[in-house]
């Protein structure tokens, strides 16, 4: 599904170029549940943004379902990303001025889905996440956990093939975190959705089948289904 070839990302600081990602090559197959871990500043968010086509690599190649993402037009990229990718953030990133209902509806609007169909899709999501009663509230009127559930619901509403989550549980109490993680697990197992999550904690990393550790912009370790030593 995903193939990265020698991806680097660098920023200019004055006259110095500082590298955030250095020569990253990796492959993720459809149906995998990958956890990316690593120290702060190691480039986890950066690589996730590149995978989600929210940011561009400085050099290297990125193939998504064999499409060369690094070569295609912005329009085409938006299409790909609309079609296949759902995003969940640590900071939820809901639109403050829209209600829960409207937040869920927004991606459907961009995909130009018709009114009646849109209604039923939103209704189904609200139902699935037990938020029917909250549909007219604004994000600021919800707890952090509830907001993140809306964030997850919004990512799922388009029925993506790939979910990218940047520390989805980072701001949540453990109990709320469990709910979110269980959702990912279920989607992964039942619907075959590919999940790539970034996390700081071994506990949350253990939900994945595969753990990739980044250190200083390099893949330090890439292991299947085994607990990670607590050396971080």
């Amino acid at each position: 599904m995903i193939r990265l070839e020698k991806i680097t990302k660098s920023f200019l600081h004055g006259f110095n170029r500082s590298f955030v990602l250095r020569n990253i090559s990796l492959e993720v197959k459809e149906g995998e549940f990958v956890s990316i871990i690593g120290p702060s500043g190691s480039g986890k968010s950066t690589i996730l943004h590149i995978l989600g086509m929210l940011d561009e690599p400085s050099t290297g190649e990125y193939f998504f379902f064999d499409q060369p993402v690094h070569k295609i037009s912005e329009r085409k990229r938006t299409d790909l990303h609309r079609e296949y990718i759902g995003f969940v953030f640590q900071a939820y990133h809901l639109i403050d001025d829209l209600t829960v209902y409207e937040n869920l509806e927004t991606p459907l609007l961009y995909k130009k889905i018709k009114g009646s169909e849109r209604k039923s899709m939103v209704a189904e999501m609200l139902d699935r996440f037990n938020m029917v009663a909250k549909k007219d509230l604004f994000p600021s009127q919800l707890s952090g956990g509830q907001q993140q559930l809306v964030g997850v619901a919004r990512a799922l509403i388009m029925q993506p093939k790939l979910i990218l989550a940047d520390e989805p549980t980072g701001n949540l109490h453990t109990s709320h975190g469990e709910i979110v993680m269980d959702w990912f697990k279920r989607l992964n197992k039942e619907d075959g959705v590919t999940v790539i999550q970034v996390t700081h904690s071994d506990h949350w990393a253990s939900y994945g089948d595969r753990v990739i550790e980044l250190v200083d912009g390099r893949v330090e370790r890439d292991v299947q289904n085994e607990p990670v030593p607590t050396s971080i």
Partner: peptide, 16 residues
């Protein structure tokens, strides 16, 4: 700008 970022993540194109 945060709203713009979110909307882009949700699939908004520039003309929209």
């Amino acid at each position: 700008s945060r709203e713009v970022g979110i909307r882009k993540v949700l699939g908004a194109e520039r003309p929209q």
